[in-house]
């Protein structure tokens, strides 16, 4: 069963906006249950790929198969197989966190929207803020709610477009843990990011998109082989600013 092993299959995908070529023959595969990270700088075409795979945008040529369904000829089936967390937290600010989740659960036609909402609130540590309007949430809380909304209905494939952009280091690590947990439960995760360490931390496979084509695709170990072989050098390991920040914040919380 090819359908069971390969969650996403993309071949020779091209897309132009008017005269600007954004994608020039992109191809890759994502295995079911894995975390696939697409790395690239701003404007590389990452979001365009996400939009095509989530049926928000039509491509010009090539094929894109998601969960065994062609995005061009069978978008309805694709939508039943996926969920999307876009680049900006797509939450309704005037509703409360709980109402946001209940709304999505109802739109997914689930049997018990309130129960689903409560479970996700609990899992994403939002229970205390559940009845507050989202406009009062911090950036990290919004992102958690946003991801929680994408998990309503347990879609087999989840797209996360730059899920940690704009988050502080703690919130970032929180999001990473949720993503790992998700993949641990068998969900396929397609992730775009511009942070190298994020891809390194999370992804089973990484592909690097540059100017509309994929220039590298492989596991982290495979990518490392592309560099000259490692030499052994002894250097003092200085803590990064991130290490310092996290250490200081943790200390403060203990007190």
């Amino acid at each position: 069963m090819i359908q069971n092993e390969i969650a996403i299959s993309v071949q020779k995908l091209t897309k132009s906006y008017k005269n600007v070529r954004v994608l020039e023959g992109v191809g890759f595969e994502v295995k079911t249950g894995s975390i696939f990270a697409m790395l690239g700088s701003n404007g590389a075409g990452k979001t365009t790929i996400v939009k095509i795979l989530t049926t928000l945008l039509k491509h010009d040529r090539g094929t894109a198969i998601v969960n065994g369904f062609d995005v061009a000829s069978n978008p309805e089936k694709v939508r039943q197989s996926i969920s999307l967390t876009g680049q900006f937290a797509a939450v309704d600010e005037i509703l409360t966190g709980r109402e946001n989740l209940i709304m999505i659960a109802k739109l997914r036609h689930l049997k018990n929207p309130h129960k689903v909402a409560d479970e996700l609130l609990n899992r994403f540590v939002l229970t205390d803020a559940a009845n507050r309007r989202v406009s009062t949430y911090s950036g990290g809380m919004r992102r958690r709610l946003d991801i929680a909304m994408s998990l309503v209905g347990k879609s087999p494939i989840v797209f996360l477009d730059e899920p940690t952009t704009g988050l502080d280091p703690e919130a970032r690590i929180e999001v990473w843990n949720f993503i790992k947990e998700l993949a641990g439960n068998g969900t396929t995760v397609f992730l775009t990011t511009q942070y190298l360490d994020e891809a390194e931390q999370l992804a089973d496979r990484i592909s690097i998109l540059h100017k509309g084509t994929i220039i590298v695709n492989g596991t982290l170990a495979e990518l490392k082989k592309l560099c000259p072989p490692a030499k052994i050098e002894y250097i003092e390991k200085q803590p990064t600013l991130e290490d310092i920040f996290l250490a200081v914040v943790a200390k403060k919380e203990e007190n």
């Binding site: 939009k51 989530t54 049926t55 928000l56 309805e76 939508r79 039943q80 996926i82 969920s83 999307l84 876009g86 680049q87 900006f88 937290a89 797509a90 939450v91 309704d92 600010e93 999505i104 739109l107 997914r108 909304m149 797209f159």
Partner: peptide, 13 residues
């Protein structure tokens, strides 16, 4: 602008 339409449009509704 807030991407809420994109969320709805990527759902089977």
């Amino acid at each position: 602008q807030r991407g809420i339409f994109e969320r709805f449009h990527s759902m089977p509704i």
